[in-house]
Design a protein around this nucleic acid. Sequence first.
DNA 1: GCAAAAGTGTTAGCCCTACACCCATGT
DNA 2: ACATGGGTGTAGGGCTAACACTTTTGC
Lengths: 234, 234
Amino acid sequence: MTEVETDLYSIKDKMYAAADCIIFGFDSGKLKLLVFKRRVEPLKGEWSLIGSFVRLEEDVAEAAKRVLKEITGLENVFMEQLKAYGRASRDPGYRCLSIAQYALIRISEYDEELVEKHGARWYDIGAVPDLVLDHNWMVQDALERLKQKARYQPIGFELLPEKFTIPQLQKLYEVIYQKELDSRNFRKKLLSLKVLIKLDEKDKANSRRGAFLYKFDYETYHKLEKSGYNFEIS
Amino acid sequence: MTEVETDLYSIKDKMYAAADCIIFGFDSGKLKLLVFKRRVEPLKGEWSLIGSFVRLEEDVAEAAKRVLKEITGLENVFMEQLKAYGRASRDPGYRCLSIAQYALIRISEYDEELVEKHGARWYDIGAVPDLVLDHNWMVQDALERLKQKARYQPIGFELLPEKFTIPQLQKLYEVIYQKELDSRNFRKKLLSLKVLIKLDEKDKANSRRGAFLYKFDYETYHKLEKSGYNFEIS
DNA sequence: GCAAAAGTGTTAGCCCTACACCCATGT
DNA sequence: ACATGGGTGTAGGGCTAACACTTTTGC
């Protein structure tokens, strides 16, 4: 883009680009991360995020979707770029920069067989093992982003089944924010946002009494969003 | 990072990485962007962000610092990665992904001569010309990030001289947020944060009466930050 | 003396927080 | 009948937002 591009150095300065995915799930009240045991050298047997080189003819975002589908069978899930990791020394072998993207998936929907076949495994977010290269940093950064973003945008719902209960939702926010929330205030706040649809069904999985199921009303949310409404859950 | 990396495709999949800088300044009550007229083909004569290929042996962040220094003479300024732009078709010539970083500089401090020598120019943020490739998107995204970030972190001060007046600071926030603020509330809020040091000097550039100069107290800010204080300017 | 920007207080309403008890139901 | 999680209301305090006039001084 500048004069520098045209000087003689540039011809040598091609490098690999990897798309690495931080895949979050939520299950049994825990936030989980999907990691992957490398089956090939170098670093065979080490835990790693799921990723791939970006091919010359594909978009970076496409590459991430490709590997996500390969490992989980899922398409059309929430995925957003976190940032690029570009330290020259980050990969000891060859120069490779990584564009990290995080995905939020409904843990009930992924293809278990496929995941196992690829040597992948869910880890509780509090017990993620050592990962190769700078992948643990990526996870940290992604968690931070999730924490920030969940506050102002309804992305938490991407981690829950389509039908969920308020206590489930509260638990999710508690693990994301790493703090306990008051159930009365939480419920009041959520319902005041007018974007939950109460169903006529109960989920009795967690109590004898059962809790009403709700759906997130994306349509209403998008309408409200356009008219300067702001979603916020503290 | 996955099996895909080891297949036969990967050997061909090297690409260029550019570091492009969105350089913001603030002057005469306006937010400005530093852009650059390309002197070389392709796209000679077009306006562009300032950037460079990332060299094999340098960090992406270093590359951005390098070009910033080349054009403005400045070092140690606020600079943060925005994100990577990785569409396969973004550069019509060769595959090149760009890691965009935005910088906030004190417009009084840059090296004018150097800037002119490189064919660079400040544009009012409301009147940025068409830029090459996806650079206008980068500017939009950077503005959005600036708006978000200025709210919760004292980065606005990076755009002001070390000594500034409250009305100057207010004007800055007004152009970033694109809305007018109430001067009584603004002053009250800022002073309540306890991170401005009032000086015994006045700046008479903008009024006969003159306005007191202040400095941002980074030391106190960092202390307060550690003890769970949060900066916020709405 | 006047123009032009700097500086100053108060009030009302809203939202967040804190807090404790009853309900429904399966065993 | 009891244990377990689901569901409900209120009051106080803090923060934000709205609002108008006086001060200073160079010309």
